[in-house]
Amino acid sequence: MNRGGICIFEMISETTKRALEVECRRLCEAWGLRRAYFAQVLGPRRHFLAGYGPMEADRPEPLRLSESLVLLWHGELTVEAREALRYDLEATVRRVERELADREAAGPEGDGCIDEKGNT
């Protein structure tokens, strides 16, 4: 879908992206983090998906959530907090994993543009 000349291509739908941004904001507020963002694991690459908070010139802390998802953040989290976070994010992780797998498997049909509902 070409909307006013602007196409949006993401590995996740706009709806999921918004949900992840909300999730990151919630994490920042609940855990006192300055920034949090999700990335897809592709070999050594951490491919940005969605996040919340201003970028900082420092190395983010990583928490591997699944084979293909990692959460990165700026701020302090105890070991216990990390484990709680992992549990907290289980449903989100399942949803994103499923969507990433669906999109990887999707063929080249259509013009490739994705609308807000994730339709091509």
Binding site: P44, R45, R46, H47, F48, M55, V70, L72
Partner: peptide, 16 residues
């Protein structure tokens, strides 16, 4: 080579 290994890619890199 740090940027792309820390999620500073595409739309997350461009603002920087």
């Amino acid at each position: 080579t740090a940027g792309y290994r820390e999620g500073r890619t595409g739309a997350n890199f461009m603002p920087l």
